Simulated assay, not measured.
Amino acid sequence: MEPHHLKKELITASRNLQNEIVAMRRYLHQHPELLFQEHDTQAYIMKNLQKWGYKPEKTAGTGVITQISGEKGGPIIALRADMDALAIHEENELEFKSLNPGVMHACGHDAHMACLLSAAQIIAKFRNHLHGTVKIIFQPGEEGGGGAKKIVTEGHLDNVDQVFGIHMWSPIYTGVIGLNPGLLMASADMFRITIKGKGGHAAFPYLSIDPTIVVHEIYEAFQKLITREINPLHTALITTPEFHGSKAGNIIPSTAILSGTLRTFDLKDQKNLLSRMREISELYAKAWRCESSFELLGVSYPPVVNSKSLSEKIKPILQDIGAVTEVEPSMGGEDFAFYQQKTDGVFLFLGIQNPKKKIIYPHHHPKFDVDEDVLWKGCAIYALLAFLHSL
């Protein structure tokens, strides 16, 4: 089959699966599971893959990996979708609303899985036209768990030539494909600072050692780091939204806790800021006769940086699906970055914002939703990238 005919067939096949993709997305949306608890999701994915002739295996505990090779040799391409949901109670009134109280797919991972599952069906159907091998990765634990790092550690990326991923993206209008050559998403570090003093009555602060004043000083000092120690042409932020102190207005606590996140686009800035944040926490605590600890929580994510040459190669292929545009880099983090540290990769955004349908809420919001009319495009993106070297 001629490349232009194959491309047309892949796009048509994706359109024809729209209803099936929606049904899969709705099932997955109703049955969300938190990071590394995706057991039912794993079983659902494996059952569908087996139905289409795949031999899926478990990876990273609750993930799934499989592969398919064409009759003609060629590179190995990996396609990835994340699986985990968030600890959020859904506020949408949908017929397919989450059945797990306090757990919700509020970041689009249900849609990512549905699109990749459908693409797997198409890849199997057109296998005879495939040049090379496609690895299909359903990855657990993206939301802070570094599931991608586990998959890399298991060696699944060692022989991969190119890797691709998609994220449903609420900041851009529905159906628009966001493709950035180079920098796309920031590094992500979560931290917790614990300050220990001496508790007491709020009316007699001189008899206590108040840890809350130290936390206040640290909060302000961190913002000065951004304005005074980072090149103003670089981008970095420190957000500290979580604070725990006393539970009453007349009690000075023995311990105060400040938690937050550091985001940067530059690995050197990331390293320097973490060092200075630790130092400031220790010295401010010491100045006020307190003890301190500075902990990094979970897995630190490096920045997502797309291969420029690969981005340029796939852009004209994707334009047959819809508009492809560069988007503003995001301070959000993504563990897809671990794959890109092993091989060339591109992470894409697919717009889902649709004010007419009141699909306007950001990621991680209890009313987050996906414009299901674009799901066939997500499937088509995966399918076209699988056959990149056949087109």
Rank of each mutant, 00 (worst) to 15 (best):
G146N: 03
H105Q: 07
G332E: 04
P75R: 08
G260R: 10
A60P: 14
R278N: 04
A337D: 10
V214D: 13
M190F: 11
P232S: 02
V370Y: 10
H105M: 15
E217S: 10
L348R: 02
T212A: 11
A386G: 13
Q319C: 12
E91L: 14
V346S: 08
E90K: 15
I177S: 03
G61E: 09
Q353S: 15
K150F: 13
I11T: 14
N48C: 01
F294H: 06
M113G: 11
R263M: 01
V346M: 05
H234I: 02
L273G: 03
G74E: 08
A221V: 02
T59H: 06
P316A: 00
K271T: 08
D40V: 01
G155Y: 07
S118N: 02
C290W: 00
H4E: 14
I76D: 05
M46R: 07
I314F: 06
N250R: 07
L49M: 10
I321N: 01
Q67E: 14
I218N: 01
L117K: 07
E57F: 06
L86P: 02
E95C: 10
G322T: 05
L17A: 05
L17M: 02
V103N: 15
G260I: 02
I218P: 00
L17Q: 04
P56K: 02
A383R: 08
A186R: 00
I280D: 12
